[in-house]
Design a protein around this nucleic acid. Structure first.
Lengths: 335, 335
DNA sequence: GTGAAAGCGCTAACAA
DNA sequence: TTGTTAGCGCTTTCAC
């Protein structure tokens, strides 16, 4: 049997109540006995049984996070941010894994988290359907989308996709490009795509450029490297572009490599700007200009918001925008 | 107050024991009442309180994983593997975050996991010091290193670093290269570096090539992109190489980009082979030849081993090798 | 400053 | 097939 608080109490000639107080630094106790108790605890190799503690105490201090594993993981910055902020706020976080597009697993994982009585559940760029969101809310838990805008009835903290699309496109236009492709997102599929596309169109319109349908290349609609790669063949055939707005760094890299594969080298025939600003942008040749999100801050704000929601759960869906910035590198030399 | 098992019992006119049995599918009960109970549970929006359940039951079914967040994340495959295998074995996994080189945080996180009474703790390419390992063992929990060999007294499942170093080097030699640099790992720093370096030297020796000290470029010793980048300047100055064995994909990409930055384009002046085989290898231009690890399998085997250890904890340190393979791409055309 | 005691929500004998 | 009961290990009034 593992060592319990009672073992300590016995050894110290105290009641479990006193030991509990000392170990938790609550209530009053003398420093002398405290020292003794802590020594005994260390000596015995005692560890609190959190199940028992959580059961007895009623306030919950753990936050659930549901992530999906991805190779180029912009979420890694988000997770860092979450972890840092959580450490500071004294909440601890439980990370669990699901797959995108696998609602069954997402639900299972969410239920696991509910059983563990977390006070909030953060979805990292993962889009649960409304049934799952409802089930979480019904359990009295605060759900929140992180690092992605979201259409359904759940608050989110993320960059403003519309503004990002607008900034990216406007930047290309200011550099003198006028025939601008839109790659990798599906405007009809998710709100992120919808918003970025709307921003893109708004920027075109503002500059008096008439959008042409053949400028849109969706690919798999998943912001993937493959979509970028495939876009090159498509555009070569169907559109006379001078620039591309890639809705992800992966997509931009795909476009670059597609161009290299086609021409033998990158010739700056197209201006390219991407979204996210992960290290891919620095490590690509040429380096990719990007609209860069502050993923760390997104993570921090997500935790802060979830903590705030404990005492004061927002009545309506809340949309928190986190600032982003423009980073010009080598793929936007201008015309 | 949240709905409890007692609420269900009351509504169903049953005892909590019966409800518990039904909800857990243990013992005997009639299908008729079971149906009724489940309906009521769903109706009430009931979720088991795991703290209570874990406290009452005594067997633990959750596995702890400590990971660090990284942008190019070969661990993502490991995590997938862990998740899949865990799902199949009916264990659920808790992932927590620490930073490499931050033993204080690693310890804190490990203690958190101990308090949650996990049955095992997996370290993903994270190297806790012996004190932490001892503390975990003392708590009756099985610790295991995953995806990295490890010198201290803890079992591990990973690729065999010595053999990987050997294979990579031998491959270059077979392609006709004879002056081969070793980049990114520090043979004196961690066992991974030591082993890969030993394999590298063994392969050189076996081919009758005399190793020269200036062929070693450690950089930050962290298998980083930066080390690869810096290696080019170093070698240009100090060694006349015809090939490079990069101890990571990031490092190999650094070497390639360093060469491009130096020469304006990649000229295949050096053969390059890397270790890991992440998607970087496919997405680089040229594509990088690699000794590719089976990270998914590593993850699966790690879980399987941890589960096995519940009933039959290994007495001595166990070292489990997972097979890897060679993937030739474009950076090893031969001389 | 410390202790007694109730109870958190559940499981697991053991009875019935 | 179902119920009674005794905990699991801890926290938290409320007394002392």
């Amino acid at each position: 049997m593992r060592v319990t608080i009672e073992d300590i109490a016995k050894q110290a000639g105290l009641s479990v109540a006193s030991v509990s107080r000392i170990l938790n630094n609550t209530g009053r106790f003398s420093q002398a006995t405290a020292k003794r108790v802590r020594a005994i605890a260390a000596d015995l190799g005692y560890y609190k049984n959190r199940s028992a503690a959580d059961l007895a105490r009623h306030t919950q201090t753990t936050l659930g996070v549901i992530n999906y594993p991805a190779e180029t993981d912009s979420n890694f910055h988000v997770i860092r941010g979450i972890t840092e902020e959580a450490r500071q706020s004294g909440v601890d976080v439980l990370i669990m894994i699901a797959e995108r597009d696998d609602q069954a697993t997402i639900q299972k994982v969410a239920q696991d988290l509910i059983e563990r009585r977390v006070f909030g559940i953060l979805f990292l760029s993962l889009h649960p359907d409304q049934a799952i969101i409802d089930l979480i809310k019904r359990a009295g838990i605060y759900p929140q989308e992180v690092a992605s805008t979201y259409a359904l009835d759940m608050s989110y903290v993320s960059s403003n996709d519309y503004q990002m699309g607008q900034l990216a496109t406007r930047t290309l236009i200011e550099k003198g490009y006028t025939r601008i492709g839109f790659v990798g997102a599906d405007p009809a599929r998710d709100i992120v795509g919808t918003q970025r596309f709307a921003g893109y169109q708004a920027a075109l319109a503002a500059a008096g450029i008439t959008y042409r349908p053949e400028w849109l290349f969706v690919g798999d609609g998943k912001y993937s490297y493959q979509s970028g790669l495939a876009a090159v063949a498509y555009y070569t055939e169907h559109a006379a572009l001078d620039a591309v707005f890639a809705t992800s760094d992966d997509g931009a890299l795909g476009v670059i490599n597609g161009l290299i594969d086609r021409d033998g080298a990158f010739t700056h025939q197209w201006g390219i700007i991407s979204t996210d600003g992960s290290q891919i942008c620095e490590q690509s040749r040429p380096k990719i200009s990007s609209v860069t999100q502050d993923f760390n801050l997104i993570g921090r704000m997500a935790v802060a918001e979830a903590v705030r929601a404990i005492d004061d759960p927002p009545q309506a869906k809340k949309q928190i925008d986190v600032p982003f910035k423009l980073e010009l590198r080598e793929t936007t030399p201008g015309k």
